[in-house]
Design a protein around this nucleic acid. Structure first.
Lengths: 167, 167
DNA sequence: CGGGGAATATTGAGCTGGCTATAGTTGCTT
DNA sequence: AAGCAACTATAGCCAGCTCAATATTCCCCG
């Protein structure tokens, strides 16, 4: 009847609802372990990077934060002992954020519950074919609207840009 | 090999990526018309409500904002002439937010482009069967993790809680 | 070499939203 | 009928983020 019932609106609305529900649930579990969502994201990104480290700029590119946002979240996490800063030997402008053993341990405390929630709230709700269809459709959309897609052969978008882990 | 390649992580990561890409694109278009994402969401919610109005509390329940957040966004939108406050005749504690004709006009300026972006970035990337599968899967997850689902027969979750329009 | 433009991280200023307290209102209960 | 608990909107305070400005460093090109 009205525009708000358009199929596209419904689909996007569902996507937003699921995203919001998952985000809220994830955040609640992160908080049980004294982490915010961005802190978990930073830990994850660092832990899956070579030598458990990433330049501030690259960390910003892999998260939803600006570079100044990264500076501040690393400030907090360094204060809490989860990461440290390390000067880049080859470029004195850059500095690395390195996850500490305490940071890795914190991540290991959080991950099992995180995976359990994903299973309980998301993947476990779908039979394998539906999940495969969902992932396939999302991947197609992602590939089509990926920042690289619109920027053409932008070299900034190299293969190191992985799907965001969960946050 | 490592935990980050678990299927659930990949699926959630894709969901987050698509959500982030759409959010960013939507926000850019909203900004062309001088609206923020929450302002668009408020306009949409009001416009699809009876008499173009909603109590502050109900508006908060239908958005991602707290009640004080709603107070403030309505402050800004009232200042910009998009909505007005109206006292509730039957309950002097409540007040309605009512969308003005200027607000409706602004919404009508934004919506066509919004729908076009949804088509271009999302639904248009999928063949009809894939889109149907995607919507079906999302709906199943949504129904399973919907706030009402965990709260049991919580009367606060009535049928007026629709899928979020797009933001 | 050496200068100008790009890149990098950080800081300050400002905006936005949540949490909590508060004041006013309602309606139930005894 | 009175009191009390719940509800409603708002204001104060604070956390976290982005944007713009800044200082330092790198690189390219003459």
């Amino acid at each position: 009847m009205n525009v708000f019932d358009a199929p596209g609106i419904t689909a996007v609305g569902l996507l937003y609802e699921v995203h919001a529900a998952l985000s809220t649930r994830f955040a609640a579990q992160f908080e049980e372990h004294g982490l915010s969502t961005v802190e978990f994201e930073v830990l994850t990104r660092l832990a899956r990077s070579p030598q458990n480290q990433l330049r501030m700029t690259d960390l910003a590119a892999q998260t939803t934060l600006s570079t100044s946002g990264v500076t501040r979240v690393i400030d907090r996490m360094e204060r809490d002992g989860l990461v440290t800063r390390r000067a880049c030997p080859s470029d004195r402008r850059s500095s690395f954020a390195v996850v500490t053993t305490a940071g890795l341990q914190r991540l290991n405390e959080v991950l099992p519950g995180h995976l359990r929630i994903i299973e309980e709230w998301f993947t476990g709700q779908l039979d394998p074919e539906s999940l495969k269809a969902l992932v396939g459709a999302l991947r197609r959309v992602r590939d089509a609207v990926h920042p690289c897609a619109t920027a053409g052969s932008d070299s900034k978008c190299d293969e190191t840009k992985e799907p965001e882990p969960t946050a």
